[in-house]
Design a protein around this nucleic acid. Sequence first.
DNA 1: TTGTAGGCGTTATCAA
DNA 2: TTGATAACGCCTACAA
Lengths: 342, 342
Amino acid sequence: MRTPTGAGQRTATLSDVARLAGVSIATASKALNGRRQVKAETRAKVIDAAERLSFSPNALARGLLAGRTGTVGLLTSDLEGRFSIPILMGAEDAFGSGRTSVFLCDARGDAIREQHHVRALLSRRVDGLIVVGARPDPRASLGPDLPVPVVYAYAPSESADDLSLVSDNVGGGRMAVEHLIACGRRRIAHIGGDPTYGAARDRTVGVLGALADAGLELAGGKPFYGTWSEAWGRGATRMLLEQTPDVDAIFAGSDQIARGVLDALHELGRDVPRDVAVVGFDNWEAMAANARPPLTSIDIRLEHLGRIAAQRLAAAIDGEPTSGTEVLPCRLITRGSTAPQT
Amino acid sequence: MRTPTGAGQRTATLSDVARLAGVSIATASKALNGRRQVKAETRAKVIDAAERLSFSPNALARGLLAGRTGTVGLLTSDLEGRFSIPILMGAEDAFGSGRTSVFLCDARGDAIREQHHVRALLSRRVDGLIVVGARPDPRASLGPDLPVPVVYAYAPSESADDLSLVSDNVGGGRMAVEHLIACGRRRIAHIGGDPTYGAARDRTVGVLGALADAGLELAGGKPFYGTWSEAWGRGATRMLLEQTPDVDAIFAGSDQIARGVLDALHELGRDVPRDVAVVGFDNWEAMAANARPPLTSIDIRLEHLGRIAAQRLAAAIDGEPTSGTEVLPCRLITRGSTAPQT
DNA sequence: TTGTAGGCGTTATCAA
DNA sequence: TTGATAACGCCTACAA
C-alpha cells in the first residue's frame, strides 16, 4: 500500500515503540541503546516492538541533542571525479560502517558555489569537512573561523595553520626513474605535463634527483613540458626521438601522456619495452591497464589519501587537531611497459 | 582563535541573535524568515545581529519540525564513479541552489553494504533516494515499503511499481548506424561489448533496425560480442577485416572498444575515416576526444539523466509520484572518426 | 507588532 | 528497574 505521497509507511518513532512494548519512552530508549539499567525481559520486549515497527532512530533529533551529526562534507572541484571518487571511497572506508555519512558537493571550481556549499553543509551541521582541490596546487583556505575542523586533501591549503594531505610528487618522480635505472636504462627522458602545475615541476625535481644520484643526465637535455594530453605525448616523443635517437626510457608525467608516448614509439618502430621503456603517472586503471603494452605507472594512492584524511578529520573532531602539510608516498605499479633489460 | 577541538567559533543559535537584537526568539525567527508581521526597523536589527554572529539556522532543528530535511541520498554501486558522478552532478543542478544536498554512498556492488547505507540514509531522514546501479541491467528493487520515494537511474528496478530512468540503448544503436549511413557507408559492422549486458544486446537491436530500414545487412554477418575492453576491440577488428575486408564502417559498443578498433585499423593500414568510419558509445570524453582521430560517439547524457531523476524525485517528494520505466534518448557527438564520404 | 508556549524525537538526569 | 522531565534549536499558533 502506498500513501499518496509516493512513500511507503510513515516512520515509527520511539514513542510508537514504547507504546507497543508497554513501557515509557525513556525505558525504550535505554533498552535500544544497550544501557544496562533495564531488565533483560523488558529489553527483549522493546527490541521486538522496534523490529515489528522497523523503527530507526531519527538522527536529526539525536544530532540536535548530541551536538554531533555523524556527518561529514566532502567538497570537491573535480568535475570528472577522477580524483575525488577514490578519495571519497577511502574516506568512507575509514569512517567505518555507517557511523558517519558523507555529503558530496561539487563546486566545479567556482568560488561562489563553494561558499554556497560550505554554508549549506554547515547549516546541516556536518562535524567536519574534507576539501579536495581541482588540481594539486595550493588553494585558498576556507579560513580559520569555521565552526568545524577541515582537512585539505590532494590540493593543500595556502595556510600553514590548516591540515593538508598531498601526494609526494617529488618522490613519485624519483621512484619512476629509480625503477628505470634498476631496469638497466641509462638514457632516460622526461615528458612532463602542464608546467603551470606544481606537481609537474615537482616530478621533474624527483627525476633530476634520482638521475644525479646515479651519475646520469637527463636524455634530451631538459624535461619537456606541454599539456596533460595524449596528443602532447605523441608530439613530444617525436620531437625527442628526432633530437635524441638513443633514448632507452621515457618517464611520462601522466598516464594519458604515456599513452601518446606509446603510440608514437609504436609508429616510429621502437619496441616497448625492448627498445624504450615507458613509465606513466597516476595509475589510472582504464588508461594504464589497457595500454599496449600495459603501462607501468606511479600510483598516487588516492584511496589511501582519503583514508588518512578521514582519520585526521575524525581525530580533529575528537579534539586532537593537527596542522601543516603531510606528504604521502606514492607506489610503483609494474606492468609490461618496463622490464629488466636482459 | 581556535578552541581545543580544532574548530573555530561556536555556532550561534537563534536565541543568541534574539538576545543581541533585543527581541524575543519568535520575533527573530519571523524577521529572518521574511514574515511580514514584523516592523521594518526590528527586522533590520535582527538581520544585522544575525550577520554579526554569522548565524546559520540549524537544519537539524528545522528538519525535525518540518518533517523534511532537504536532503537526498544517492546510492551507487559504481566503483569508479564514471557513471554516478555525472548523474550526481545533474541531480545537484536540478535540485538547485542548495535547497537540497546530496548524500553519496557507494555500496560497491555489495547487497549487505547497500542495506546498511539505506538504513543510514533513512535514519538521517533523507527526503528521497536515487539508486544508480552498477550496470545498466535491471536490479532488485529496494522494496515498496520505504518511507521515502525512490528513483532508479541508469539501471532500472525489476519492479514495475518503481520509477526507473534508463538510456535508450536501442535508439543509441540506431542513431549510430543512421549516422554512418548518412555518411555514405554501406558495409557497416558492429563490435559489441559483453553480451551478458542487456545494453550490449539492445544496441545491436537498434543497429539491425536501422540497417533493415535502409535495406542493408550487417557486415560480417553478425554482431561480434566480447568484453568492454580495448583489447577486444583490437582482436575483433582483426578478425572482422580478415573475413570481411570490404567493411567501410564499424560501430563499437563502447569508446574503449572503439579505441581498440582505431588502433587495429591503424595497424592494418586502413585510414580512418577515409577507408573505415568508426563510432563509439558512451562519449567518455577522456577516451573519445583524445583518440586519433577523435571519436564520434553516442552520448548517453548521464547529467541529463541525473537532472530528470532529481526532478522526478522532487515531484514524488511533493506528492506526485510516478512509476514505470522512462527511456531517455541518446545524442550523437560527431568528431573526426566519421565524415561524409566525398 | 511582539512575546509566550508547545512540540518535533531523542537522550540524560534524577526521582520513584 | 522504571518513568517523568528537561533539554537540543527552531517554527508557529495564539495571546497580549
